[in-house]
Write a protein that binds this DNA or RNA. Structure first.
Lengths: 110, 110
DNA sequence: CGGCATCCCAGCCGATACTG
DNA sequence: CAGTATCGGCTGGGATGCCG
């Protein structure tokens, strides 16, 4: 489990730190939708991400036990990512947030 | 409504941009709990925030129409903040996230 | 009381190139 | 295919001081 430099002020603070960052929400969401995704698949889905950021973000999610990483020792290499149980528990939150986001986007377009 | 430099990749991305940042989640949550809060009250509640960040964050939330700002033109000045309807729609999700956070914190303590 | 102005820094994030 | 390595920029955020 990742250690945080200074103690979170409350559980809301704590939770936001774990899913904050530019890509974490989307990665969790896409992993939920597809169940299991390979590295390259994630890279294609998050069109704007660099390999560095993708790896870094995945490692953070892994350290936080929101995502599981499974390496197949073969040639060519193959690595699969999927949500952990803890990660899955966040999905309802992200799902509702997404609905809210959709609604707001509709309002802007009008 | 605030404009975002580059288009959000999807509604999850969009939503996270609006409630991301170090303090936004907590401010929304506290405003919900207390209904109406004054500037100084928020400052005391978010013990670790600087006045600059508090003002800046509140302005962003206001521009995003999640928070309403009401100024009383008196001496000494008085400013009250409360959630807008759009902001209130986010509360159930933050509540869910908070529960998740509480649960995780319990697990760490054990 | 509720800010704003200024200066400054860390660390998040990006671009590019290379590798087992 | 699934990453590292390196360099560097930008901006979110901190510290301090002043103002109506």
């Amino acid at each position: 489990m990742k250690k945080y430099p200074d103690e979170p002020a409350c559980s809301v603070d704590y939770a936001f730190r774990r899913i904050g960052g530019k890509y974490k929400g989307r990665i969790l969401w896409y992993l939920h939708a597809k169940n299991i995704m390979r590295y390259g698949e994630l890279r294609k889905t998050l069109t704007d991400i660099t390999p560095k950021m993708l790896t870094q973000t995945l490692r953070e999610l892994e350290a936080d036990e929101l995502v599981e990483r499974k390496v197949y020792h073969e040639v060519p290499p193959k690595v699969e990512y999927k949500l952990t149980e803890i990660g899955q528990e966040l999905i309802p939150f992200i799902a509702h947030l997404k609905e809210w986001g959709d609604k707001q986007i509709q309002k802007i377009k009008k």
